[in-house]
Design a binder for these strands. Sequence first.
DNA 1: CCTAAATATTGACATTGTCGATATTTAATG
DNA 2: CATTAAATATCGACAATGTCAATATTTAGG
Lengths: 102, 102
Amino acid sequence: MSLGDLQQLTMLAVTRLEADAYGAAIREELLRVAGRRVSVPTVWVTLVRLEEHGFVESTEAPRDKGRRGRARRVFRLTPAGWNALDEARVSMARMWDGVVQP
Amino acid sequence: MSLGDLQQLTMLAVTRLEADAYGAAIREELLRVAGRRVSVPTVWVTLVRLEEHGFVESTEAPRDKGRRGRARRVFRLTPAGWNALDEARVSMARMWDGVVQP
DNA sequence: CCTAAATATTGACATTGTCGATATTTAATG
DNA sequence: CATTAAATATCGACAATGTCAATATTTAGG
């Protein structure tokens, strides 16, 4: 089982955002840091599938006073998620090793 | 348009192998360096799709004497391929930057 | 209450990842 | 020289991932 590229980027955004890792924020982080522009549903279904695989888990965030709308669902990586993500990183790094761009 | 993870690994294998970048050799390089075990058809269709996108190009290799079988088809990256590959690398690197594994 | 804001969720489809089975070409071999 | 075996490419089908327009859910504010 190997992670897709958006799955990897999404897991990294989740990690970077820590307690603020909910749908819209993850989407913004993907655009801001990776330059990857995707819709909210794209992020969402990616998170759902990662959760089905046991790579992330989620809870409803405690709602802060004065904010409208539905409660935020906050995600974080599981140990299995970390393993899978790091394996992907290592594979890619080994493949890049020694490659020089002409 | 963004590269899938196998597409990235395959392009890197092509680069590493230079004049020997044909189906079976690419498959072995993916296993040897990245630890990614895939079948020959998987590599092949990935190459075909990359070629359709203009990220790699191919020629029939001059057959060396004493080798059976069909002529090898040898692949190499196009400039557009390099650009796409490096963009993917940069996105991922920026996303990993500052992330510490617990 | 009704409206608007903030967010999650559904449903459908396109692209990529995957491989078992098959075809093509040529050297060896009887 | 017909047949077999080796080396490689290619087809056809399906599973997983990537993608978003449209819709639903929840709550603050007028």
